[in-house]
Design a protein around this nucleic acid. Structure first.
Ligand code: ZN
Ligand code: ZN
Ligand code: ZN
Ligand code: ZN
Lengths: 134, 134
DNA sequence: GTTCGTATGTGATGTTATTACATTAGTCAA
DNA sequence: TTGACTAATGTAATAACATCACATACGAAC
């Protein structure tokens, strides 16, 4: 289940909203955008988001309580390595990148300390190149 | 301003609560623990937390909406490099570590992309060695 | 003592996320 | 066809996290 057309109606609506958006959206912003499509309650959004997260089609940005469509549409699972996000606090643009060195380094620490990782969050907040020079 | 005795009353109460605790605490948990000390409203906690974050005496764990006392009491500013947290989802224990390689690697990316970082979050959730073998 | 910055007290409100329960729709086997 | 099962959905209420607005108190500087 990785293609848009296999999603349910609500999942598609939420995914499309995130794909249309320039930057990350909060669950309640998505809810407001989808009221004309029959959405009435937060749970309709959160349930769709949970599935889309499962499928690896979107990401949750923990540091800003928001969600963003994955910018690597052909590698939804991000099978190799962990993902870092650079989040511009001025324009909201999110850059998604992976780094094998960071991945290896984190794994070294967890292996060395007997820590079994389930989810790793790397988020850099700041000002992007566009906003910095403007 | 880095020593406990220079804190205000509310700041000391909040900092002591976090220091006593085995693991991270939510703002509302702190509030409940301090009701006998005159705390009545969330803002009393959040204001103290903000100052303690400024002073580098505590950290906010973005991925679990909680706060923890810094485990490096003699390096509150963490002057050199960024900090990563390993958070056990079973016992709540938080391990704080810094890694120069990760720090350098993140800086490479931000420099290469003209991104001016203000705050970097690295949080690994999983199961610690104690809980994994138990 | 007046002024000013910092800290505090308090109620109301805003934002994010989950619980609980009812309903609907599709699948599959007896 | 019916019943049983699973997944998805609809809805209201509530919980959990965070901030706003305004009033008051305190200490240092002048
Ligand atoms: Zn992605
Ligand atoms: Zn920007
Ligand atoms: Zn620390
Ligand atoms: Zn543990």
């Amino acid at each position: 289940m990785t293609a848009t057309q296999e999603l349910t109606k609500n999942q598609s609506l939420v995914f499309d909203a995130l794909t249309r958006a320039e930057g990350p959206l909060s669950a309640y912003t998505i809810l407001d955008q989808l009221r004309n499509n029959g959405f009435r309650a937060p749970l309709q959004v959160y349930r769709a988001l949970d599935k889309l997260l499962d499928y690896g089609m979107i990401h949750r940005l923990e540091s800003i309580n928001a969600f963003v469509a994955c910018s690597h549409p052909h590698d939804h699972g991000h099978s190799h390595g962990m993902i870092a996000f650079a989040i511009c606090e001025k324009c909201g643009q999110v850059s998604e990148f992976s780094d094998d060195v960071i991945t290896a380094r984190v794994r070294e620490w967890t292996n060395g300390n007997g820590f079994k990782p389930s989810k790793t969050t790397i988020e850099i907040r700041g000002v992007c190149a566009n906003c910095g020079t403007a």
